[in-house]
Each structure stands twice: as structure tokens, then as C-alpha cells.
Write a protein that binds this DNA or RNA. Structure first.
Length: 485
RNA sequence: GGUCCCAUCGUCUAGUGGUUAGGACGCUGGCCUCUCACGCCGGAAACCGGGGUUCAAGUCCCCGUGGGACUACCA
């Protein structure tokens, strides 16, 4: 399964450059929840970089935490990727299915003396950690089993024998060179007591075996990177290029989480956001191309580069996302919106004539920031009988207006040119005849037609509704005034 | 605590030693107008602080300060 159903994007790079043609990247989510905003941006950057370079984008599910991984999460993540249009070329591979490979590599390191069995219990380690912390020292594995040359026993784990001197330099495509003293790195566990590899080991083995050339991931991983580089070297693999993208923060500048509102990509779909809006918003978090704000996916593929990714974290701003979403709704063809709106319309809208619904969409297109907003604003188009908003009715459905409404209802059947222009002309002439401002009749008419004080232009509404419904609604309003005032 | 990263309007950002520090969201004044929205024109709003380097620093260096990440038999 490679969800190649997405459209294809042509790489914009000079294919004559042989070193670039073999770019391979991966997105490696752990299936312990839905795809969230941060993960989506990481996936997007990977995808854009890869498509720009004409490389291969691999999807790998990191499910070695057997206790927390679920199939539903895997499906939810793939669905979200597909919705965003981030198609992958290989995978999804499942890390848990590759444990024999990982174990092989663990054994290799043990045989070469680069890893060793450790029988320290979690409890003992936790105790030592506490003590170290209390004494103001660094909580680091103390090497109890390092030189014991232990064999495998029940409950034993395997630790990597890390270098204790020297410096490891991470050459990061976004952050530049970052150096770490190896003495800061402790002997990390690479195989757990349950026989499963730990993250830091499994990523290295898998990335190496899958020939990943560029590891693009969140910068919460920078501190893991030197250990991983040491692992690559111990295993005799080439070290890939790294690019650590800054985190996305909430309004309070802490790491984005549920506390800050919706963080699930699919929650945005359900709220009526378009994938192109989310993609456009996400890509501008930490990346810019001069002053440009609006980008199509193909445009992004053309101009995206890791060099232009900023180093500092970005605060997630829902207002700007909303603006972009409104923009993309405005830009969308009515046919497309007709399709998208199927999941959003209120019950009375289902089964209505497509041409009529399309007109409704056209009326509302510049006035809706989300599809859900559009649906909410559209209720009056589909209602058989209007409920007048109390404040609107009180202010505009008055006895003096009833006179005008009745006359207008009477004259409308004779309006030949029942278009926006024709209707506007008719109403202006009527107002002139009466010696009043258009305003005087527009608001009562609006309430009569929509039940609200705020709506699309009354000419638009009238055209969409059609003469018959218009006449009926105006008469209903006049009758309502007689009955209630 | 230790290690590492980061720092331009409220927010996202442009800026690569010499600019009236630009754009966008949001806010706001006006125009358009049947309300609202769209659109158009205008406004307020920023280089964290201190030292250097330099004729010249938002841009380079150092030190502070502030924020963030990691510090698991999670990923």
C-alpha cells in the first residue's frame, strides 16, 4: 500500500545532479494517538523536501512500544496524511515487524564488545537517579554492569557501550553544527527486557537499512542525535544528514498540546477546514519565501528548501489559519464546495436540488471562514418556515414596514428581470416612488427573507430563493407583523 | 540541577554590516454599500539587556536575561 492515488508533483531540481537523485526521507510516527499539528508539519517538511529533490518518501510506523501502540491510531494517522495530500512512496513499514533485524544488530554489537547485558533493575536505577538528582549531580547510568561481562538472563537488558571521551558533532541542516562531549552521553539501553529494541536503536537500524539519506524531525530529538550517530558508527553504517525543525508552541509558549485547543489534524477537517489551508498555514510556521503568504502545493514543491527553515519555535495562531481557510473557501469552485459541504449541511438541506445548493454556496462563499460556518449561515435557505431572530424582528418587522412588504410582494411577480441587477433596480425604483431610502425597506425585507438582521445581499438571496419562495416569505412576514404587533 | 537549542511588531515572518526595519494575521480609521462579508485606501504596533569588533550593527563576537527541548526498559 503506497497511497499513490494522490496527484503527482514534478521535482523542480536539476536531475543531472547525481548526488541528489537518491534522496530518501521518512516520516516515522508512533501510533499512540492521532496525527497532530506538529507531526503533520514535520511530515509536510519531509514530503516537500523529498518532492523538491525528486526523492522517495517512506512511511514507517514506530510501534515498538507494544503497550501504547494501536491499530486505530495507525489508521487515523494514515487517513490524516492522505487528507493532507502527503502521499508516500514506500510503506507503511511497521517497526515491530522488524525486531528480528534489530535483535541481529544487537547481537552483532555484543559480539564485538560494543554492547553488554545489564541486570540492574528499574527500581535500583530509579533510586540511583533520585539520589544523583538530590545530590545535584547528573542522573546518568553509573556503569555497574559495564565490565561484568554478563550473559543474558531473565529481566536483563542490553546496553550500548558508549564512548566516554571525545566529541560528537551533529551537522544539522537547519541548526548548523552542534557539538556534544561524549562523556555527557550514558550507556543507553538498546534492547529492553521484553526483547524489543528501544527507540534510539530501532530508528538507527531502520533508517540505515532503509537507506534514509535525510532525517528530518522535530528538534525535541537533537539531544538523541549524538547517541544515534555513535550507534551508526558502531554498526558500521553511513550517518545520514539531519535536519531538526523547531517545535510548535501554544499561545502560552509551551509545547502545543490539547490544552491549547484542537491539535488533531482530522479535528480540523471535521470543523470545516480545507487541507490546502492547513498545509499553507503549517508550512509558514518556521518557513518563509520572501513576503509570500499563499502557496499551492505545487508551488511549495518548487520553492521549498530546508535552508529557509527558521531555527526558533513558532506559536500556533488559530486566527491566521482561519483567515487562510476563508481564503481557500473563497477560491474554491462551487462544484468543489458542493461536494465538501455534504458532510456539513443541516438536515433540511439534504436532497435539495444541486443547482439551488450551488447558488446558496455562491452567496455564502465570501462570508464563511469554515465549512461549518457556511452550514450554520445557510439554515434559512432550506427552512420551510422561518424563525425570526427576536432582536431582528423587534427592530425591523414593524407595522409601517408591513405596508411596504405587502406592496412589494404584490409587485414582485411582475418583475421580469429577476436577477441581482433587475431586483436592485426594482427595489430602488420602489423606494424612490415612496420617497424613502432603500435602507428603510432593505432591512425588513432581509428579516422577512432570512429571519436575520445580517445576511448576504437581499438581491442575492432573492435570486437564489426564486420568485415563489420570495413572495411567500414576504407575505409570511407581513402576516406575522399583523398578528404580533 | 546538567546538556543542548532559540531570541525582529501581540502572533507568523522578511532582513545576510549602511533600509524611513518590509509583508501577513489580528486590532483600528475611512471608502464601497440594503446588513454582513469580500475588495480598496490609511493607522497604531518590533530589533530582550549589557559589553565589545567596525567609519557603520537587527545583522559579527562575548556575557547576562528570558523561553524551549532533552535528561525513561516512550517515541
Amino acid at each position: 500500500m503506497t497511497n499513490a492515488g494522490g496527484q503527482s508533483y514534478k521535482p523542480s531540481v536539476n536531475m543531472g545532479n547525481n548526488s541528489m537523485i537518491n534522496v530518501r526521507t521518512r516520516f516515522a510516527p508512533s501510533p499512540t494517538g492521532f496525527l497532530h499539528i506538529g507531526g503533520a508539519r514535520t511530515a509536510l517538511f519531509n514530503w516537500l523536501f523529498t518532492r523538491h529533490q525528486g526523492g522517495k518518501f517512506v512511511l514507517r510506523v514506530e510501534d515498538t512500544d507494544q503497550a501504547r501502540s494501536t491499530e486505530e491510531s495507525t489508521k487515523a494517522i494514515l487517513d490524516a496524511m492522505t487528507w493532507l495530500g502527503l502521499n508516500w512512496d514506500e510503506g507503511p513499514y511497521f517497526q515491530a515487524e522488524r525486531v528480528s533485524l534489530h535483535r541481529e544488530m544487537v547481537q552483532k554489537l555484543i559480539q564485538e564488545g560494543k554492547a553488554y547485558y545489564c541486570t540492574c533493575t528499574p527500581e535500583a536505577l530509579e533510586e540511583k537517579r533520585k539520589q544523583a538528582l538530590a545530590a545535584g549531580k547528573k542522573p546518568k547510568y553509573d556503569g555497574t554492569c559495564r565490565e561484568k561481562n554478563l550473559g543474558k538472563t531473565a529481566g536483563s537488558v542490553v546496553r550500548f557501550r558508549g564512548a566516554q571521551t571525545g566529541v560528537t558533532i551533529v551537522e544539522d541542516l537547519i541548526k548548523g553544527n552542534i557539538s556534544f562531549n561524549n562523556e555527557e552521553l550514558d550507556d543507553l539501553i538498546i534492547e529492553r527486557a521484553d526483547g524489543y529494541p528501544t527507540y534510539n536503536f530501532a530508528v538507527v537500524v531502520d533508517d540505515a537499512l532503509m537507506n534514509i539519506t535525510h532525517v528530518i524531525r522535530g528538534d525535541d530529538h537533537v539531544n538523541n542525535t549524538p547517541r544515534q550517530i555513535l550507534l551508526y558508527q558502531a554498526l558500521g553504517f553511513d550517518v545520514p544528514k539531519f535536519a531538526h525543525v523547531p517545535m510548535i508552541l501554544g499561545a502560552d509558549k509551551t509545547r502545543l498540546s490539547k490544552r491549547h485547543g484542537a491539535t488533531s489534524v482530522m479535528a480540523y477537517k471535521e470543523m470545516g477546514y480545507l487541507p490546502e489551508a492547513l498545509v499553507n498555514y503549517l508550512v509558514r510556521l518556521g518557513w518563509a519565501h520572501g513576503d509570500q503568504e499563499i502557496f499551492s502545493l505545487q508551488e511549495l514543491v518548487d520553492v521549498f528548501s530546508l535552508e529557509a527553515v527558521g531555527k526558533s519555535p513558532a506559536v500556533f495562531n488559530p486566527e491566521k489559519l482561519l483567515w487562510l481557510n476563508a481564503h481557500y473557501i473563497r477560491q474554491s469552485a462551487p462544484e468543489k464546495l458542493l461536494d465538501l459541504m455534504k458532510d456539513f449541511w443541516p438536515a433540511p438541506a439534504v436532497g435539495k436540488d444541486a443547482e439551488f445548493v450551488k447558488k446558496v454556496i455562491l452567496d455564502l462563499r465570501t462570508r464563511s471562514r469554515t465549512l461549518a460556518e457556511m452550514a450554520a449561515a445557510a439554515d434559512f435557505y432550506f427552512a420551510d418556515k422561518l424563525d425570526y431572530e427576536p432582536e431582528a424582528a423587534q427592530k425591523f418587522l414593524l407595522p409601517e414596514a408591513a405596508v411596504y412588504l405587502k406592496e412589494i410582494a404584490q409587485k414582485i411577480p411582475a418583475v421580469e428581470n429577476f436577477t441581482r441587477e433587475g431586483i436592485e433596480e426594482f427595489l430602488k425604483e420602489y423606494a424612490q416612488e415612496k420617497g424613502i431610502k432603500l435602507k428603510i425597506i432593505a432591512q425588513p425585507l432581509r428579516v422577512a427573507l432570512t429571519g436575520k438582521a445580517v445576511s448576504p445581499g437581499i438581491d442575492e438571496v432573492m435570486v437564489t430563493l426564486g420568485k415563489e419562495r420570495v413572495v411567500k416569505r414576504i407575505r409570511d412576514a407581513a402576516a406575522w407583523i399583523t398578528a404580533n404587533k
